[in-house]
Design a protein around this nucleic acid. Sequence first.
DNA 1: AGTTTCAGTGTACGCACGTTCACTGAAAGG
DNA 2: CCTTTCAGTGAACGTGCGTACACTGAAACT
Lengths: 235, 235
Amino acid sequence: MPNTVHIRTPKRVQTVVGTLIPVTANPDAPVSETRSDKKERTRRAILDAALRLTEDTGLAALSLRQVAKEVGIVPTAFYRHFDSIDQLGLALVEESFVSLRAMIRDVRQGTPTLGQIVDRSVDVLAVHVREDRPHFGFIAREKSGGSAVVRVAVRREFGFFERELATDLARLPMDHWSSDDLQILSNLIVSAMITTSEEILRAEPRELPDIRHRARTQLLMVIVGALNWKSTPSG
Amino acid sequence: MPNTVHIRTPKRVQTVVGTLIPVTANPDAPVSETRSDKKERTRRAILDAALRLTEDTGLAALSLRQVAKEVGIVPTAFYRHFDSIDQLGLALVEESFVSLRAMIRDVRQGTPTLGQIVDRSVDVLAVHVREDRPHFGFIAREKSGGSAVVRVAVRREFGFFERELATDLARLPMDHWSSDDLQILSNLIVSAMITTSEEILRAEPRELPDIRHRARTQLLMVIVGALNWKSTPSG
DNA sequence: AGTTTCAGTGTACGCACGTTCACTGAAAGG
DNA sequence: CCTTTCAGTGAACGTGCGTACACTGAAACT
């Protein structure tokens, strides 16, 4: 029977359950909230669920249905908040980099000597990474992750971040440097920072002092190298 | 009818197709080869297919059925070669790092001055990454990829690689260094190398000179910094 | 020549997926 | 008070997945 035609028979009478218990994954008492408050809360729950569920496997292995189940909504309700998993991913990229920028702002709090800048930078990095683990983990994973649009977004943001750092570096006593060279230095520092973050993320607490020592040493090497660089033409 | 029992009815008579045309994804004429030769060729085809199919999405999004289709075998035949996609991934990690070690061996070909070491290292890296794109791309992706066992394997190998590099560095005129410090330096250099590789991988040919210039500069900064480091205590 | 091995076949299964659709009911708004 | 809006519902669909199983036929071995 090749010509089997399926006719959708929409049931007119439905079970009487409806939206009795909104299980939107929040233990707080939803005493009284506006409609958009509640929507925002569900959206937040979706973002958090996504961060949790991608922790082991990455965004590529995340399904809309998993997210819905975790949040406590029906799969189709997901579409009220995001068009696709990719769009959800972009939202996560955005808020992750907000967290990262907050960090760099933290470092800028008037630190006079080079040694202090280095120490403070590493300390701030360590604290932020531990405190906002989910977002830092997300960025680290999706930098080379499975979704093309998300990957591109992450790299774009890292590009911005790198340029911001370069302008910060320009304020150090290396005025004679070209902006190209500052960019190169910034790129190197960001590389080391990413590696350090990844190490912090998967380290046990007792390993942290070693990692911080290493990060400090590396940052110092790089800065000393940069300062002495022009004057020591190769070997 | 809840108790529906499905009884497997294995057909005794089967269509007469069998292994008439072994489409094992190889254009060469398979004039005459032993059984294990052929198996090896199929295995190779599976590995290549996996490298091709994961290029955009990573191993996490790779299905056994996709691989089988690409290779030209039936899904179940996959099991003759690998227990799971994860095992296939481990095989790819292994052969990828063979390629990486070949690279470091290439650098070691007697290069006297520091400047030459730097130039040669960057050149060799650029050439190898372009020539063995699939493997370098695979490592870069799966370093933070979706499969736990593969991720761990990649990081393990990077650990070895880093230690190898540290012993190489010990041969440079920095004998007074502790092995801990050499390890730290090595870690920093590998970080920069990974970033550079990723940039080379996604760069267009016309961007390569810039990337190489940057890599050279960074490597030089790091080495100069390392050499001058102890004598310039913070600042 | 007769037997064993084994890479590859084809069918069938149960399950999770993204997406469609018509529907509900409380909040928002006139 | 009556109407509109809209976050969330639940059933249904087609598809692709991993894995099971019994099977085949040529190569390898005795």
